[in-house]
Protein backbone atom coordinates (compact mmCIF):
# COMPACT_ATOMS: atom_id res chain seq x y z
CA UNK A 1 0.00 0.00 0.00
CA UNK A 2 2.88 2.39 -0.65
CA UNK A 3 1.41 5.44 -2.32
CA UNK A 4 3.23 8.51 -3.44
CA UNK A 5 3.22 11.58 -1.23
CA UNK A 6 1.32 13.35 -3.96
CA UNK A 7 -1.59 10.90 -3.61
CA UNK A 8 -1.76 10.87 0.19
CA UNK A 9 -1.28 14.64 0.35
CA UNK A 10 -4.10 15.25 -2.12
CA UNK A 11 -6.32 12.87 -0.19
CA UNK A 12 -5.64 14.83 3.01
CA UNK A 13 -6.47 18.12 1.27
CA UNK A 14 -9.81 16.62 0.20
CA UNK A 15 -10.52 15.11 3.62
CA UNK A 16 -9.65 18.35 5.38
CA UNK A 17 -11.87 20.46 3.15
CA UNK A 18 -14.79 18.04 3.47
CA UNK A 19 -14.38 18.04 7.25
CA UNK A 20 -14.24 21.81 7.43
CA UNK A 21 -17.33 22.09 5.23
CA UNK A 22 -19.26 19.45 7.20
CA UNK A 23 -18.20 21.11 10.44
CA UNK A 24 -19.32 24.50 9.14
CA UNK A 25 -22.76 23.01 8.39
CA UNK A 26 -23.31 21.87 12.00
CA UNK A 27 -26.22 23.70 13.59
CA UNK A 28 -25.29 26.38 16.14
CA UNK A 29 -26.18 25.75 19.74
CA UNK A 30 -28.85 28.07 21.12
CA UNK A 31 -27.46 30.35 23.79
CA UNK A 32 -23.81 29.81 22.87
CA UNK A 33 -21.84 31.97 20.45
CA UNK A 34 -19.17 29.26 20.06
CA UNK A 35 -20.56 25.86 19.27
CA UNK A 36 -19.45 22.46 18.06
CA UNK A 37 -18.45 23.72 14.60
CA UNK A 38 -15.27 25.62 15.53
CA UNK A 39 -13.01 22.71 16.31
CA UNK A 40 -13.74 20.57 13.21
CA UNK A 41 -13.39 23.60 10.96
CA UNK A 42 -9.99 24.50 12.43
CA UNK A 43 -8.82 20.88 12.37
CA UNK A 44 -10.08 20.35 8.83
CA UNK A 45 -8.31 23.43 7.51
CA UNK A 46 -5.07 22.41 9.23
CA UNK A 47 -5.31 18.93 7.71
CA UNK A 48 -5.82 20.44 4.26
CA UNK A 49 -2.78 22.67 4.79
CA UNK A 50 -0.62 19.73 5.89
CA UNK A 51 -1.87 17.71 2.92
CA UNK A 52 -0.85 20.48 0.54
CA UNK A 53 2.62 20.69 2.11
CA UNK A 54 3.02 16.92 1.80
CA UNK A 55 1.82 16.86 -1.79
CA UNK A 56 4.47 19.47 -2.66
CA UNK A 57 7.13 17.38 -0.96
CA UNK A 58 7.96 19.71 1.90
CA UNK A 59 9.49 17.86 4.81
CA UNK A 60 10.37 14.81 2.74
CA UNK A 61 14.05 15.54 3.34
CA UNK A 62 13.63 14.80 7.06
CA UNK A 63 12.19 11.44 6.18
CA UNK A 64 15.17 10.49 4.06
CA UNK A 65 17.51 11.57 6.85
CA UNK A 66 15.54 9.51 9.34
CA UNK A 67 15.66 6.44 7.12
CA UNK A 68 19.38 6.86 6.72
CA UNK A 69 19.82 7.14 10.49
CA UNK A 70 17.76 4.03 11.00
CA UNK A 71 19.84 2.07 8.52
CA UNK A 72 23.07 3.39 10.03
CA UNK A 73 22.08 2.20 13.47
CA UNK A 74 21.54 -1.38 12.42
CA UNK A 75 17.77 -1.60 12.05
CA UNK A 76 17.26 -4.71 9.94
CA UNK A 77 15.25 -4.64 6.78
CA UNK A 78 12.99 -7.49 5.92
CA UNK A 79 12.78 -7.91 2.20
CA UNK A 80 9.22 -8.01 0.91
CA UNK A 81 8.76 -10.83 -1.55
CA UNK A 82 6.94 -9.63 -4.64
CA UNK A 83 4.11 -11.84 -5.78
CA UNK A 84 0.93 -11.50 -7.79
CA UNK A 85 -1.51 -8.65 -7.21
CA UNK A 86 -3.99 -10.91 -5.39
CA UNK A 87 -1.34 -11.79 -2.83
CA UNK A 88 -1.53 -8.22 -1.53
CA UNK A 89 -5.17 -8.69 -0.59
CA UNK A 90 -3.99 -11.02 2.17
CA UNK A 91 -3.51 -7.96 4.37
CA UNK A 92 -7.28 -7.76 4.64
CA UNK A 93 -7.46 -11.13 6.40
CA UNK A 94 -7.02 -9.81 9.99
CA UNK A 95 -9.68 -7.08 9.79
CA UNK A 96 -11.85 -9.51 7.84
CA UNK A 97 -11.59 -12.04 10.65
CA UNK A 98 -12.63 -9.36 13.17
CA UNK A 99 -15.69 -8.51 11.08
CA UNK A 100 -16.49 -12.22 10.85
CA UNK A 101 -16.21 -12.42 14.65
CA UNK A 102 -18.70 -9.55 15.07
CA UNK A 103 -21.17 -11.13 12.66
CA UNK A 104 -21.31 -14.63 14.11
CA UNK A 105 -20.23 -14.50 17.77
CA UNK A 106 -23.72 -13.82 19.11
CA UNK A 107 -25.16 -16.69 17.08
CA UNK A 108 -22.75 -19.54 17.63
CA UNK A 109 -21.00 -18.41 20.78
CA UNK A 110 -17.52 -17.32 21.72
CA UNK A 111 -15.63 -20.64 21.73
CA UNK A 112 -16.56 -21.84 18.22
CA UNK A 113 -16.12 -18.38 16.69
CA UNK A 114 -12.76 -17.83 18.35
CA UNK A 115 -11.60 -21.27 17.28
CA UNK A 116 -12.46 -20.55 13.63
CA UNK A 117 -10.78 -17.12 13.77
CA UNK A 118 -7.63 -18.53 15.37
CA UNK A 119 -7.44 -21.45 12.96
CA UNK A 120 -7.81 -19.26 9.88
CA UNK A 121 -5.32 -16.68 11.13
CA UNK A 122 -2.74 -19.35 11.96
CA UNK A 123 -3.16 -21.07 8.61
CA UNK A 124 -2.91 -17.79 6.73
CA UNK A 125 0.40 -17.14 8.47
CA UNK A 126 1.72 -20.49 7.28
CA UNK A 127 1.32 -22.59 10.42
CA UNK A 128 1.32 -26.34 10.00
CA UNK A 129 -1.97 -28.11 10.67
CA UNK A 130 -0.84 -29.39 14.06
CA UNK A 131 0.07 -25.90 15.33
CA UNK A 132 -3.03 -24.28 13.84
CA UNK A 133 -5.32 -26.87 15.43
CA UNK A 134 -3.53 -26.54 18.76
CA UNK A 135 -3.92 -22.77 18.77
CA UNK A 136 -7.55 -23.02 17.65
CA UNK A 137 -8.41 -25.35 20.53
CA UNK A 138 -6.33 -23.96 23.39
CA UNK A 139 -6.33 -20.18 22.80
CA UNK A 140 -10.14 -19.67 22.92
CA UNK A 141 -10.40 -21.71 26.11
CA UNK A 142 -7.56 -19.85 27.77
CA UNK A 143 -8.90 -16.43 26.73
CA UNK A 144 -12.39 -17.36 27.85
CA UNK A 145 -11.03 -18.39 31.24
CA UNK A 146 -9.15 -15.09 31.74
CA UNK A 147 -11.77 -12.72 30.36
CA UNK A 148 -14.95 -14.46 31.47
CA UNK A 149 -13.93 -15.77 34.84
CA UNK A 150 -11.33 -13.26 36.02
CA UNK A 151 -12.51 -10.09 34.29
CA UNK A 152 -16.22 -10.93 34.10
CA UNK A 153 -16.60 -9.98 30.46
CA UNK A 154 -19.97 -11.33 29.26
CA UNK A 155 -18.85 -13.45 26.31
CA UNK A 156 -21.78 -15.20 24.64
CA UNK A 157 -22.07 -18.94 25.37
CA UNK A 158 -23.62 -20.17 22.15
CA UNK A 159 -23.30 -23.89 21.47
CA UNK A 160 -20.43 -24.50 23.84
CA UNK A 161 -20.87 -23.02 27.31
CA UNK A 162 -17.75 -23.42 29.39
CA UNK A 163 -17.99 -25.28 32.70
CA UNK A 164 -16.80 -22.31 34.78
CA UNK A 165 -19.67 -19.93 34.17
Amino acid sequence: MKLSDRVTGTFLVGLGLVTAYAGHKLPPVPGQQIGPEVFPVVTGLCIALCGALIAFGIGAKFEEEAEADLAAHGGENIAVVERGPLYKLRVLIPPGLLVFYVLVVDRIGFIPTAAIVAFLAATALGARLKLAAGVAILAPIGIHLIFYKLLRVPLPDGFLPMPWR
Partner: peptide, 30 residues
Amino acid sequence: RSGIMPIIVLCCAVGSFATGNSLFAVLTVA
Protein backbone atom coordinates in the same frame (compact mmCIF):
# COMPACT_ATOMS: atom_id res chain seq x y z
CA ARG B 1 4.84 -16.10 14.75
CA SER B 2 1.96 -18.09 13.28
CA GLY B 3 1.11 -19.27 16.78
CA ILE B 4 1.27 -15.85 18.48
CA MET B 5 -0.53 -13.68 15.93
CA PRO B 6 -3.87 -15.57 16.06
CA ILE B 7 -3.89 -15.13 19.84
CA ILE B 8 -3.29 -11.40 19.38
CA VAL B 9 -6.25 -11.18 16.99
CA LEU B 10 -8.46 -12.84 19.60
CA CYS B 11 -7.15 -10.57 22.37
CA CYS B 12 -7.91 -7.54 20.17
CA ALA B 13 -11.47 -8.71 19.66
CA VAL B 14 -12.20 -9.61 23.27
CA GLY B 15 -10.20 -6.78 24.84
CA SER B 16 -11.92 -4.09 22.81
CA PHE B 17 -15.31 -5.72 23.36
CA ALA B 18 -14.63 -5.49 27.09
CA THR B 19 -14.15 -1.70 27.04
CA GLY B 20 -17.90 -1.14 26.68
CA ASN B 21 -19.25 -4.67 26.20
CA SER B 22 -20.24 -3.74 22.71
CA LEU B 23 -19.37 -5.47 19.45
CA PHE B 24 -19.14 -2.08 17.80
CA ALA B 25 -15.75 -1.62 19.44
CA VAL B 26 -14.51 -4.72 17.58
CA LEU B 27 -15.51 -3.13 14.28
CA THR B 28 -13.68 0.02 15.37
CA VAL B 29 -10.57 -2.06 15.94
CA ALA B 30 -10.83 -3.59 12.47
